[in-house]
Write a protein that binds this DNA or RNA. Structure first.
Lengths: 252, 252
DNA sequence: CAGATTCAATGATGAACCTCAATTCGAGGC
DNA sequence: GCCTCGAATTGAGGTTCATCATTGAATCTG
């Protein structure tokens, strides 16, 4: 029997009907802008969890938007130590730094199975010439990412193990919430403890111990890859994390 | 007697004759571009060491280029802990993130006496509309800054105290070198140990002890606020830091 | 030059975190 | 149902780093 599946074609859902775009987390765009984005998008790509989206030192990387799934940026030292720099959720821009600079200074890996909207590097210049508003928003998104890394650096540099975990969990919770991925205070949480450790700058063992300490203290529970945050207020206070802006952001 | 000093007027040296721009660290620009930058610059401001260039939570911050001196970006937790995110040297863009986002998520402080070229926030949009090449370079500079913070996060998350110090010293050395500020392997090094500690995510005491351990080990000497790097190769190896790109970068 | 102030250096002690090692748990595969 | 394999948990012991406290050096002030 022929497989008449509902899977969209080479470039996926038309951008005008993009389900992400409907979410309140994202700004409205003019039809003109969306048509430009649609024309710029050359592919809709699916990757398995664990695959490289951008490999370290890759030259002339392409630009993506994460359509579904989670990913992370990371940086490795020659002896194998690895720091996870930040996590990427649906709607986030992927590879902006790598596509603007001559060569990627980091890797980007799919944390879960992901779908990506592909924008070839060459057309970025076009966007700057023809769509200054989109160019501005691209720069804005870059600054937003920098701001999130600032937070992570502050966390890793200043907070102890418990605070770091609390800060990471509450931040991811809020980001998932903004995307409508939270229900009954719980959301999909696909990180392994090794990945947690690499993001927090802690050893695997110490991460595991602190993680279960916080679970036993009643901060959150986890089962079936889903995390339920039992006391968001407490978690936020423990991490000394401020409310973050809920204003809609650009989606490109 | 009237003070006929040689200090330039309200907007300082004309951008076409900017001494920074002459340095090999920076790309050549067309006269057109430089004239646009000149027109966009509304002030040339001098600040004393220790003053705030952008204060935490400041709204609608202006955009600057650091003309002379050093500065740093930092982020504080409510209880007073502070993380220095990165250092700014002459030619670096100052406040891009703060001027693109609605409110600054960090503070920027003058580490030494500084001079700044002031570009009002309002004209940034103008730049995106009329000068796509400059807009692209602005985004490029933002990505470069992000890349430097990535490095710092990796350092704080993965390296031990000695490695962190080595990485910071070698990185600052190379950046100073690119600006022609190094002679006989030595350069001005205006950081206090408290600032070092805040940048490295270490306590003041441990920073002091590790710092003198590395001096005694013959990595570098310091006197009169000037640091001499005795063994750049060894320092780079200890930090496991790669060569970084020496390609010229945009100056705006 | 005495007094105040800031920054750097260093010893003592304890807590936080790391490494090594062993064990348990859970999800396939057959 | 049993085996395998990766991920998570837990204990023991060691190291790094933080905190507290004191002193010395350098700079400023009146």
């Amino acid at each position: 029997m022929m497989n008449l599946n509902s899977r969209p074609g080479r470039i996926g859902t038309p951008c005008l009907a993009c389900p992400l775009r409907m979410k309140p987390a994202f700004e409205d765009k003019t039809d003109d802008e969306i048509r430009f984005i649609q024309a710029m998008k050359t592919d809709h790509r699916s990757l398995k969890a664990g695959s490289d989206i951008i490999s370290p030192d890759q030259e002339s990387a392409e630009l993506y938007t994460l359509f579904s799934g989670w990913a992370f940026r990371y940086k490795s030292l020659p002896d194998g130590r690895r720091q996870i720099l930040n996590f990427l959720l649906p709607g986030d821009i992927v590879g902006l730094q790598a596509s603007l600079l001559a060569a990627a200074q980091h890797g980007i890996e799919a944390l879960t199975d992901v779908e990506l909207c592909v924008f070839p590097r060459k057309r970025i210049w076009d966007l700057f010439v023809r769509m200054p508003n989109l160019a501005y928003e691209l720069a804005w998104l870059g600054s937003r990412e920098e701001s999130m890394i600032d937070d992570n650096l502050t966390s890793v540099g200043q907070r102890n193990a418990s605070e770091r975990i609390a800060a990471l969990v509450i931040t991811l919770y809020r980001r998932a919430d903004a995307l409508g991925l939270v229900s009954d205070s719980s959301f999909d949480f696909p990180l392994s403890q090794q990945q947690l450790a690499d993001a927090l700058g802690l050893s695997l063992v110490h991460t595991s111990k602190t993680w279960s300490k916080l679970r036993k203290a009643g901060l959150f529970t986890i089962s079936g890859g889903r995390l339920t945050l039992l006391n968001p207020r407490l978690t936020a206070r423990m991490a000394a994390v401020y409310e973050q802006s809920k204003a809609p952001r650009p989606l490109i």
